[in-house]
Design a protein around this nucleic acid. Structure first.
Length: 627
DNA sequence: CTTAGGG
DNA sequence: CCCTAAG
């Protein structure tokens, strides 16, 4: 039994987290600064957010697993999970995957884990009055009925969501006396539309159900023999799927599908019986519609009717991820039959990138980051650099706010007893390790025999707690290099357009090493329209305002980008009778017009006359419009 | 720090 | 997209 005495919530997640500023509307680090509560349901992940507070509830077993996993290959994953990273879902899925294996494959481990988990819960996370335990929230037919009533708002919301989303699951949950059979993973992740300050308030009545992740294990799992054959492919492709070496422009559909197929390990059973299916359904109601997947793309892709029943919950443009197997198991099986004739004992839900890609507009950066990271791996070796160095390191194709994981890793592992082999590897590398699965198994096996958990405790949040510099990294708002600093191309932060229509992002034919430029980001028609709206509203010359208002969620568009785009639009629309000859104009027109509706250009011309772009006074001096 | 303008 | 000059 690990020493849990130090595991005090406050110690693990210092209040300073709560005072950090999130300047972006949607930050990949929305998971930073969460309180973490450990509930007694073993597999629970619940991310909730009120106006001021974010709280991550982890099932005790999962929490335990995470602690232990911190010492495993996927330390990065667990780390991400605990400390907030855009990869949250990804990490979560992997963790859950491993955890599943622990439970099923390593039967011997499970009980121990459970025991300890209980202890953890009691020792560590005695629910404070101001915090709601998961049980209380879930009202899983356990104690804490009082808590339920105390927190009606939240409880209601969640249960409501549960019912709406997974129907029978609720009863399923309440039935399971055995936590291990529960196999339910529920996650409320929050996308945080407009979080500016995260205060240490304890109010969960706010909006929180932006992001839901549910796993329902269809049946009690008997014996399962997992063959993580998808494993290596999974890892490989996750890092390779994006135009290797290429400065990872967002190749929306491509990367998406690739990663989705790649990140779904297939588990085969030797006896061929299908015991359990975990299906991942994913919805991204972001803005408008589901991010539809290529049809036959993958059997585990959400199908519209799968989604139907989940649809009521969050209509306000928030991603919903649901990992469900129960009633949909059949579909999965069918699909699996149709597709890969492989008899699948268990279909693993689309983990990682797939989910993020679909669920989160800002997820694209993950892929890009990964490609970048892998591409630049040599550059970003284990140097431990100061914060400043880190942020300005030209060699690193990183933006200030991106390097959460690495940053944290370095900052926090510094001086800890992290094994060298871990310390020397960037988190990303570990994450993309093809051997992740198998290593996870190794770990799980090993952990039975060796006091691995004690070591794991060393990496408990307390130790990992962010300090100073690293803590601020997640919330850096300016993706772009500041004036004085040399450019830090923001290559990972890019979020995919909600309307990923134009996945035709220009892929730079990057040859060798000249990847200094920010990767091209194709302007989508909706974006252009947004821009136009913004200009109509503010006129030209107030690009920052336009950016803030119209492009708050798209971190990759800087005011300069907006202006440049406008400039191009003007040129292309011919609204500017400048020196560009008609020839040129026409060419431009052909280029741009092809992809833009003429109505857009009509508006461009209108605005061009309304708000003359180079707004110079007759005297030639620039006039800043006040309003 | 923002914008204009040129590359 | 990047960079620099200029308010």
């Amino acid at each position: 039994m690990p020493r849990m005495d130090g595991l005090d919530r406050e110690a693990h997640f210092p209040k300073k987290f709560a005072s950090m500023k999130c300047q972006r509307d949607i930050s990949p680090s929305i998971f930073s600064g969460c309180y973490v509560e450990v509930g007694s349901s073993p597999l629970n992940v619940l991310m909730s957010k009120s106006n001021d507070t974010k709280c991550l509830w982890l099932g005790k077993s999962l929490y335990l697993a995470l602690l232990t996993l911190l010492d495993s290959t996927i330390a990065g994953q667990a780390f991400c999970l605990l400390y907030g990273k855009s990869d949250f879902v990804e990490a979560l899925c992997d963790v859950v995957c491993v955890f599943d294996m622990l439970l099923k494959v390593d039967d011997s481990f499970a009980p121990a884990l459970e025991d300890e988990a209980i202890e953890v819960q009691h020792l560590v996370v005695e629910p404070k009055t101001d915090h709601v335990s998961v049980d209380g929230v879930l009202c899983l037919g356990k104690e804490n009925s009082s808590k339920c009533s105390e927190t009606d708002g939240f409880s209601y919301g969640f249960n409501d969501g549960m019912r709406k989303n997974i129907g029978g699951l609720h009863s399923n949950i309440t039935q399971g006396p055995d936590d291990l059979d529960l196999g339910v993973l529920d996650g409320f992740l929050d996308e945080v539309d407009e979080v500016d300050d995260i205060h240490a308030a304890n109010d969960f009545s706010g909006a929180y159900e932006d992001f839901i992740l549910d796993i329902e294990l269809a049946e009690k799992v008997s014996y399962l023999d997992y063959t993580p054959r998808g494993g290596s492919r999974l890892r490989n492709s996750s890092s390779e799927s994006q135009s290797p070496g290429c400065s990872g422009s967002s190749n929306g559909a491509v990367g998406m599908s690739e990663s989705s197929t790649a990140t779904i390990p297939k588990f085969e059973s030797k006896n061929g019986r299908h015991h359990k299916t975990v299906k991942c359904k994913l919805r991204c109601s972001s803005g408008d519609k589901w991010n539809s997947q290529e049809p036959g793309e993958d059997s585990m892709c959400p199908t519209s009717d799968d989604i139907e029943d989940l649809d009521e919950l969050d209509d306000d443009a928030k991603p919903l991820i649901s990992l469900v197997s129960g009633k949909n198991a059949k579909k999965v099986v069918q699909a699996a039959k149709a597709g890969t004739s492989v008899r699948q004992k268990r279909l693993r839900k689309p983990t990682k990138r797939y989910i993020e890609e679909l669920s989160d507009p800002k997820s694209k950066h993950v892929m890009e980051r990964k490609s970048d990271l892998s591409a630049n791996l040599k550059d970003k070796r284990p140097k431990i650099r100061s914060h400043d160095e880190f942020h300005s390191g030209g060699a690193l194709t990183r933006t200030p706010k991106e390097p959460i994981s690495e940053n944290i890793t370095q900052a926090t592992f510094k001086g800890t007893d992290e094994p060298l082999h871990l310390r020397s590897k960037p988190v990303s590398e570990r994450r993309t390790n093809p051997l992740f699965i198998s290593k996870g198994r190794h770990w799980s096996i090993r952990s039975q025999n060796e006091p691995c958990q004690v070591r794991a405790v060393k990496f408990a949040p307390k130790e990992l707690s962010l300090t100073g510099p690293s803590a601020q990294a997640p919330f850096e708002s300016r993706p772009r290099r500041g004036r004085p600093k040399k450019s830090l191309p923001l290559s990972f932060l890019e979020s995919e357009d909600d309307e990923s229509e134009d996945d035709c992002v220009k892929k730079r034919t990057c040859k060798k090493s000249n990847d200094r430029r920010k990767h091209q980001r194709m302007w989508t028609t909706p974006e252009v329209m947004k821009l136009i709206d913004g200009i109509a509203q503010y006129g030209t010359g107030r690009w920052t305002d336009i950016k803030k208002l119209m492009f708050s969620s798209t971190a990759y568009r800087t005011p300069i980008d907006l202006r440049d785009k406008w400039r191009n639009l003007l040129r292309a629309s011919g609204a500017q009778k400048r020196k560009s000859n008609k020839k040129e104009v026409k060419e431009k027109l052909k280029d741009v017009v092809r992809s833009l509706p003429s109505s857009v250009f009509r508006r461009v011309r209108e605005l061009a006359s309304l708000h003359p772009y180079p707004r110079f006074s007759p005297g030639g001096r620039y006039i800043r419009r006040k309003n």
